[in-house]
């Protein structure tokens, strides 16, 4: 099996080989301190073999012509991470109380909490950023033909992630519980209910009953902060595994390298 490429460390960071005749005498305290990090990593690696996985994930060969458009997926990932972190801290202050507590807790976050307005703004605008990035990433994949064999399954996972992102946007929209949030959710719910045959039952499921009640808000909150984020995180894992396993595609305009010594001769 071919050796995986070594991490591209600059030569200054590489330890110099011991000079001949110096031997392996006892290490000085400074040297021991230097070795401590390596010792800890070695201890973990000996018991988990994680370094192989890390190298497999991070030091991959990428095709010639890889450009800035290939960063849109990572950008979406970081948008999701930003949403996750800011969301966790917003959840420490938010109360899903339809009788006025929800709006009051959002007002408290925005007006009273230190940096509350900033963190809430990150979450609010970050949601739009994530939706936009998902679509740009999807457009890049489509236009570069990166959905074709053998990457169809990754496209399918990506579409599910797109739908889940929209579910996040929809359920998060209700949580401030102002007039806009309330009526937008009423409208979205009723649009769901206009699906023939199953629509009315889906609408009842989302609202948890025939009318908008306090349960609707807690239901949207649970979907928004527990159900869908878990599913998104798991699917992002699968998405990244497939990207690493299958590699990325060359851009469609890159020419096939026709140097004879690089092509296999047919027998």
């Amino acid at each position: 099996m071919a050796r995986r490429p070594a991490p591209p460390l600059p030569s200054a960071l590489k330890a110099p080989p011991p000079r001949p005749g110096e031997g392996n005498g006892p290490l000085s305290p400074v040297e021991q301190a230097k070795e401590a990090g390596i010792t800890v990593v070695d201890w973990v690696d000996e018991r988990t073999s994680l370094s192989g996985a890390a190298r497999w994930l991070m030091f991959r060969k990428v095709p010639k012509g890889t450009n800035w458009y290939y960063t849109l997926g990572s950008a979406t990932l970081f948008a999701f991470l930003s949403q996750a972190v800011t969301g966790v801290f917003l959840a420490m202050f938010y109360r899903p109380d339809a009788a006025g507590g929800a709006y009051e807790s959002i007002r408290h976050i925005t007006d009273d909490v230190f940096l509350g307005q900033f963190v809430r703004g990150m979450h609010l605008w970050g949601a739009s950023v994530m939706v936009v990035l998902v679509f740009l990433h999807m457009g890049r994949t489509f236009l570069f033909g990166a959905y074709k064999y053998p990457r169809e399954l990754n496209w399918v996972i990506g579409v599910v992630l797109l739908i889940l992102t929209m579910v996040m946007a929809l359920t998060g929209y209700l949580l401030p519980f102002d007039q806009r949030a309330y009526w937008a959710t009423i409208v979205a719910n009723n649009i769901t209910a206009t699906g023939p045959l199953v629509g009315p039952y889906l609408g009842d499921f989302l609202r948890s009953g025939p009318e908008f009640t306090a349960t609707t808000l807690s239901r949207f909150y649970a979907i928004h902060m527990l159900l869908v984020p878990g599913a998104i995180a798991a699917l992002i894992g699968a998405h990244l595994y497939l990207v690493t396993k299958l590699g990325t595609t060359a851009p469609p305009w890159s020419k096939v390298d026709r140097r004879p010594e690089l092509s296999e001769t047919e027998v």
Partner: peptide, 23 residues
């Protein structure tokens, strides 16, 4: 029996959008 908004009741509408037990 009550239907959600957006659900027509003329023609086959009443069968495409059945009345729900909750309503």
């Amino acid at each position: 029996s009550p239907r959600d908004p957006g659900e027509p009741l003329d023609g086959i509408g009443q069968y495409l959008y059945p009345s729900r037990p909750s309503a």
